[in-house]
């Protein structure tokens, strides 16, 4: 029989490991072993992890394919950036978490508005409708100033002077929070309802699961966390332009989810880290990056549709299981 650790022990161990990771990271940065450039790369990796994990809710767990990550990201980024610029009476570091959550909520609202009509339909409409929606968002951000005669988003001439409040530590704390909330959601009855919709809509419906309700819920959660990722992105860049939130951005995130394994949160985290850090190391091949990405999508879908992790999660149980298997194997060899 497989021996499991108690839940509090496992949770404490996870928090401990995470705290150790943060301390180690900060220590290496203070000692200049990780330079400023790679600190930035790690911050981007953290943001991409959040984006990939949240897209995974909709793609891996719900089984739909929204192509509008960039749109929700833009909503989160612009909302939080505009508030951050206006709020000068408290220190940016204090205002930032609140702004992030407001950015997430704005994205979630958009997710609700778009998800309700789109999710009633079956098939690939969700892909095209979210894609169209992301385009609408981009066009609105680009043109709203000239249309209404206000200065809100500054359109094509960049939203500048956003306080750069994203740091290594707070970015990864958000990764941790998002991952914790997503895994808690997926282990609850709501999570199981979402998974059952992915596996068989008709069977799920006949078991009394309200399809529209759970689909919309998963979609809103996806939009919310993507908005949070966008807000962190705004705090990282310090300057926003609508062209940064094009279709290509959505595809980048989709590649991460597909390679990590649709339905595996840890897979998404790992592949987001790898796909952010490796291209930075192999700078010489940056021209070929998108070609390699698209080839990877096709090849993975044809030969290993499960991706890196399939729908398994990387956990301590898996580690201990691995060691036990190894020990057993060695013993049986003797």
């Amino acid at each position: 029989m497989k021996k499991k650790f108690n839940l509090p022990v496992r949770q404490l161990a996870t928090v401990g490991a995470f705290a150790l990771f943060l301390l180690l990271g900060n220590f290496l940065m203070a000692k200049k072993i990780i330079g400023l450039y790679y600190t930035k790369v790690l911050m981007v990796a953290a943001i991409n992890m959040i984006l990939a994990v949240s897209l995974n809710i909709a793609t891996g767990f719900l089984g739909q394919l929204p192509l509008g990550s960039a749109g929700f990201m833009a909503v989160g980024a612009y909302t939080s950036a505009i508030i951050m610029r206006k709020v000068t009476f408290v220190s940016p570091a204090l205002a930032f978490p609140v702004c992030i959550i407001i950015g997430g909520l704005a994205a979630a609202l958009c997710g609700f508005i778009i998800g309700l009509p789109a999710l009633r339909l079956k098939g690939d409409y969700i892909a095209i409708i979210t894609l169209g929606f992301a385009e609408i968002i981009r066009i609105v951000i680009l043109n709203i100033d000239s249309a209404l005669g206000i200065t809100l988003t500054y359109g094509a001439s960049n939203l500048k002077n956003i306080p750069k409040t994203t740091t290594f530590t707070n970015a990864f704390i958000w990764v941790f929070i998002v991952c914790y909330l997503v895994s808690a959601l997926m282990k609850s009855r709501h999570g199981r309802a979402i998974l059952s919709i992915r596996d068989n809509e008709i069977a799920a419906e006949s078991c009394g699961i309200n399809l529209t309700y759970y689909k919309t819920m998963a979609f809103i959660v996806y939009a919310f966390f993507t908005g949070i990722g966008g807000a962190l992105y705004a705090g990282y860049l310090g300057i926003l332009n609508p062209s940064g939130f094009s279709f290509a951005k959505s595809i980048d995130i989709l590649v991460m989810v597909v390679l990590g394994g649709m339905g595996s949160m840890t897979g998404s985290v790992i592949s987001a880290a790898v796909l952010t850090i490796v291209p930075e190391i192999l700078h010489a091949f940056s021209d070929y990056r998108m070609i390699v990405y698209s080839l990877l999508l096709i090849v993975v879908m044809i030969f290993r549709p499960a991706g890196l992790m399939g729908n398994k999660e990387f956990s301590m149980d898996m580690l201990t299981g691995l060691f036990k298997k190894k020990a057993k194997g060695e013993r049986s060899k003797k």
């Binding site: 394919l65 597909v258 649709m262 998108m290 698209s294 879908m301």
Partner: peptide, 21 residues
């Protein structure tokens, strides 16, 4: 015979491949 989502992702991959090539 694979799920439709795989087919859709492949289609996006092809589209991206042609565009970037």
């Amino acid at each position: 015979s694979s799920p439709r989502i795989s087919l859709l992702i492949t289609a996006i991959g092809i589209s991206y491949l042609l565009e970037n090539t």
